[in-house]
C-alpha cells in the first residue's frame, strides 16, 4: 500500500468530538447521534480508497457537513404541522451559551454550518471552504451573514 493512512481508530479518537460538536450545533441534540453514525460509517467505507492522508479532519467534517444537509432536507420533507415542539433542553457545545446555539440553529443552513465550523471547531476559512465546497470568500461571507443575523437578534 503506497498511501500512509493512520488506523481508523485514531481518527475516531482524535476527531469524534469535533464532528459531534459540529453536528450538535447544526442539526441539534436529537439528530446529532444519527448524523454522527452516518458520517463515520460513510468515512470508514471510503477510507481505504482515500488518495492521501492529509487533513483528515477536514475530510471528516466535509462528510459531516453533507450529512447535516441531508438531515436538514429530510426534516423539511417530513415537516409536520403541529405547534412548535419544545426542544430538549439544549446541551451546549463545549462552553458556549445555549441561547446562542438555539439561535444558530434557526439560521439558514449555509450560514449555520459556516458559523459552527468557525466557532465550534475553530476552522480557518481556508478549511471551511474545503469542507463546504465553496470559495474562501463565500465561506467568509456566510460566517459574516450568520453573525449579522445573530447580532440583529441581540445575540453575540
Amino acid at each position: 500500500m503506497s498511501v500512509a493512512l493512520p488506523p481508523f481508530q485514531r481518527l475516531l479518537d482524535t476527531y469524534a468530538e469535533d464532528v459531534y460538536g459540529f453536528l450538535h450545533a447544526t442539526v441539534g441534540a436529537t439528530e446529532a447521534d444519527d448524523c454522527f453514525q452516518e458520517t463515520f460509517l460513510a468515512a470508514l467505507r471510503a477510507y481505504p480508497r482515500l488518495q492521501h492522508g492529509d487533513n483528515l479532519r477536514s475530510w471528516l467534517l466535509t462528510i459531516a457537513h453533507r450529512k447535516a444537509i441531508d438531515a436538514h432536507r429530510a426534516r423539511g420533507r417530513r415537516a409536520v404541522p403541529v405547534a412548535e415542539v419544545p426542544e430538549r433542553p439544549a446541551k451546549p457545545p463545549r462552553d458556549v451559551d445555549p441561547e446562542l446555539w438555539s439561535a444558530v440553529r434557526v439560521l439558514p443552513p449555509k450560514q449555520r454550518a459556516a458559523v459552527a465550523h468557525r466557532f465550534v471547531n475553530d476552522l480557518p476559512y481556508r478549511d471551511i471552504a474545503v469542507v463546504m465546497s465553496c470559495s474562501e470568500d463565500a465561506a467568509r461571507q456566510s460566517v459574516r451573514a450568520g453573525l449579522a443575523t445573530l447580532r440583529e437578534r441581540g445575540l453575540r
Binding site: Y20, A32, D33, Q37, L41, K91
Partner: peptide
C-alpha cells in the same frame, strides 16, 4: 449533566459496534 465530550464518546462506541 452530560457534556459534548461524554455524548461524543457514547456515539463513538455505538459507531464501533455498528461498524463491526
Amino acid at each position: 449533566m452530560t457534556t459534548i465530550h461524554d455524548e461524543s464518546e457514547a456515539s463513538a462506541r455505538r459507531f464501533a459496534a455498528r461498524a463491526v
